[in-house]
C-alpha cells in the first residue's frame, strides 16, 4: 500500500532534489494522459508539489506549466505548499457531521491553533477536513497519518494527537 506519511521520506524537508523526478517521468514516458499519475507520484516523493518540480515536469513533458498548474489546482489531492509531519484528516461527511464531527474539529483547532487546511508553524500538524472516508457506520471518524480513529470525541482525539512526537 502506498504510504502518505511524509515522515517516511526524507525529501519532505526543504531541499528539493530534482533527481527523483527522472525515474517517475521515465516510467510514464509515452503514456497518454499520464499527467495526473505523474503529479501524484511527484507529490508522494516531495510531500507536495514545489514550484521547481512543476517547472521541471513541464520542461521534460513539454506540457505547458499553465496546464500543469491548472490540473494541480483543480484536484483537492494536490498541494502547492509544504505540510506538517502529521496529517490529521477529520471527516465531516454527512454521517460524521450529524454525529458530532464539528465539535472535534473545533477542539483540535483550539488545541493546536490551526484552521482547517492549515499547518502549524513548526510543521508538526496539518489539519484537513475530508468528506466521507466511507465508514459512516463508525462516525464520527478521523484519519491521523494512516491510522483510522473511529467514534472520535473532542477531548480524546486531542489527547491522542498530543501523544504524537
Amino acid at each position: 500500500m502506498r504510504k502518505n506519511n511524509p515522515r517516511d521520506n526524507p525529501f519532505a524537508e526543504e531541499t528539493i532534489d530534482l533527481k527523483h523526478l527522472e525515474k517517475i517521468l521515465d516510467e510514464f514516458k509515452g503514456q497518454k494522459g499520464a499527467i495526473i499519475p505523474v503529479l501524484q507520484r511527484a507529490q508522494y516523493v516531495y510531500g507536495y508539489l514545489p514550484k521547481e518540480v512543476l517547472q521541471a515536469i513541464s520542461r521534460k513533458t513539454r506540457v505547458p506549466l499553465t496546464r500543469l498548474y491548472g490540473v494541480a489546482t483543480f484536484y483537492a489531492q494536490f498541494r502547492l505548499a509544504r505540510r506538517g509531519r502529521h496529517i490529521i484528516r477529520v471527516c465531516d461527511g454527512t454521517a460524521c457531521h450529524v454525529r458530532g464531527a464539528p465539535q472535534s474539529i473545533e477542539a483540535i483547532g483550539k488545541a493546536f491553533q490551526i484552521e482547517p487546511g492549515g499547518t502549524t508553524p513548526d510543521y508538526k500538524y496539518t489539519l484537513e477536513i475530508v468528506y466521507c472516508i466511507g465508514s459512516c457506520g463508525l462516525a464520527p471518524m478521523a484519519v491521523v497519518n494512516e491510522k483510522v480513529h473511529a467514534n472520535i470525541e473532542p477531548d480524546k482525539i486531542v489527547d491522542e494527537l498530543k501523544k504524537l512526537d
Partner: peptide
C-alpha cells in the same frame, strides 16, 4: 469515483 458523503456501496 464514489464521492457522496454518507455513501460506501461501491467501496
Amino acid at each position: 469515483d464514489e464521492g457522496d458523503p454518507g455513501a460506501f456501496m461501491d467501496r
